[in-house]
Design a protein around this nucleic acid. Structure first.
Lengths: 339, 339
DNA sequence: TTGTAGGCGTTATCAT
DNA sequence: ATGATAACGCCTACAA
């Protein structure tokens, strides 16, 4: 298996290695006859070109490194699906690494990818300034495309979701169905929280609706127990206040799903008592009780577009005009918001 | 960046390339003094060894190919997390590919990995006999470890979950809390369905409980709409029969989550009217309404163990004693089964 | 202790 | 249309 080389073919066919090499590359310099002979022999003996030798010779690996925080995350795994599938269709290899939300590990991933000789890097950074200096340095020699976490000072190509638009859509939907007393629960450590909130505020302003400042609540996702308690306390105190809300926007998948569970347990009726709109990519949104109205990020497409951009860069390293692509989110209306 | 080679160091330090090479490898042949000089220079100039050249020379790539059906699947993404993290800790690269449930694509992945020169392959096959002949051939030259889909005629190392045990635990739990009228809904195209059912039957037998044959129902996961209808029809007809069930075991994550959603919509009380135990790895099980009692597969650990096995094989290609590791599943009791 | 030279499998240049 | 030869960057006998 896989032991036969170009040299063996040359010897067997009594031609030179270069002839074989060119024949296999379908070069115009080689006669049809010779090509046929070579191809036939190669086929018959299951010749497999040695990619490593080729890589060494050409100084390229045909491999792109991808760094994500956590591949087991719903959204991320969908993005990775898009990346892997697209690169595979283009014959490019994908080396996936996980930073596990740690800047130090992220640095190791970057260094590791570099010394593996990847041709480019796709990264969703740990946070806005993680390894920024290093990335800036790297960028001088490698094409780098940021995805998902695109609120980043690094000057480069970026592909992500339009989270401002997402926040806007979520809010607009609630306002349109007459839910004007909105509370917003956001993940405090999540970069996109800011954009999503911005979108919410934009919609509120446009519809001339005001909400008290303390209707915006930040939670920490680290400990689910604490999270659950915080959400419950917040909502209950709000509901029993003089100006009870009739809708809540949940700024992340975890917050969304937990909230529904918590409300159900506490006997808070959704959507009658409080309507819920969440940011979530899980296909289980429909299976929740009630089915959850969601803002969905085009995860697969984000991966796809980032891939296309990278391939473009690999072909054409000159166009230094950095592009920021923000793909539209989708509002999927289900029962939790009251139709 | 990364442009400096061993040659450059040699030239700069007025020594030979081999001296540098050996110094970098910390060879005993080289004097401490020279080593220091070389290391210092390498450090200072950010020397990065060219892995490709090394690979070419040594005929190894230090890379393992991984083939899964669908990386965006909850369980699979958790396994991949385990694989990627473990290999990374060992300094081995992971090349992940997706077969998208297609035997032809799987074949392409395999061929692609081979010609990329991976040192070994970790695969969760599309089905029990997909590319079997090819895998058998491959196995003569490469270490191959099967994971997840381990009911496979291929004679090799296998790591997966003990699904028979999982079925047993699910059933035993129901029987212990007095739910003896059990129906079982299984995914018809899922390989593990057989094992899970086997476990269920084993428990029923052990507890001397009989269920009618038509309490076992197979559904197709392709179309969710159809699936939902099928599940609802089945359960409703069962519930209105002369011998209504008081418990259901859902043989896959999709079936589990959909069922809960469907029951809620149809006003079927869980667990009062019917208790539900599902096979699911999603962390949202708790957020469902009611929180879902689940059989959880040790996904991360499966990936981890498969990795360990592969590394073992790479070090020690001789031990041809094939091992089949079946890791225990975990029963997580929540409200859907009635506590 | 250090250096020389050959080769891993390809591709690319330049002859022939 | 074909072939000889030199790289690519590294490792490793073997020589010195």
């Amino acid at each position: 298996m896989g032991k036969i080389t170009i040299k063996d073919i040359a010897k067997a066919l009594q031609v030179s290695v270069s002839t074989v090499s060119k024949a296999l590359a379908d070069s115009y310099e080689i006669s049809e006859e010779t090509k046929k002979k070579v191809l036939a022999f190669a086929e018959a003996h299951h010749y497999i070109p040695n990619r490593i030798a080729k890589n060494l010779k050409q100084g390229k690996t045909n491999t792109i490194g991808v760094i994500v925080c956590d591949i087991a995350n719903t959204f991320i795994s969908q993005v990775v699906d898009g990346i892997q599938t697209s690169f595979m269709n283009k014959g490019v290899d994908t080396l996936i690494m996980q930073s596990h939300h740690d800047e130090g590990i992220e640095r190791q991933c970057l260094e590791s990818l570099i010394n593996k000789g990847v041709d480019g890097i796709l990264i969703s950074p740990v946070h806005e300034t993680s390894n920024l200096d290093y990335l800036i340095k790297l960028q001088k020699s490698y094409p780098i495309v940021l995805f998902d976490r695109i609120q980043n000072p690094l000057q480069t190509h970026k592909v992500g979701a339009d989270n401002v638009g997402g926040g806007f859509k979520a809010t607009q939907h609630l306002l349109r169905i007459g839910k004007k007393d909105i509370v917003i629960i956001l993940a405090d450590k999540l970069g996109v929280s800011k954009q999503r909130l911005e979108g919410c505020m934009k919609a509120l302003k446009q519809y001339k609706v005001d909400i008290p400042e303390d209707n915006i609540f930040y939670v920490n996702l680290k400990d689910t127990h604490v999270l659950d308690k915080e959400i419950l306390n917040f909502i209950q105190s709000k509901l029993s206040s003089s100006n009870p809300p009739n809708a809540v926007i949940c700024g992340s998948e975890t917050i969304s799903t937990r909230s529904l569970g918590i409300f159900a347990q506490a006997g808070i009726k959704v959507p009658e008592e409080i309507a819920v709109v969440g940011f979530a990519n899980t296909s289980f949104a429909f299976s929740l009780n009630p089915p959850l109205t969601t803002i969905v990020q085009p995860a697969y497409e984000i991966g796809e577009k980032a891939t296309v951009k990278m391939i473009e860069l690999l072909k054409n390293s000159s166009p230094k005009e950095f592009e920021k692509i923000e793909l539209e989110t989708k509002l999927v209306i289900r029962k939790s918001s009251g139709y």
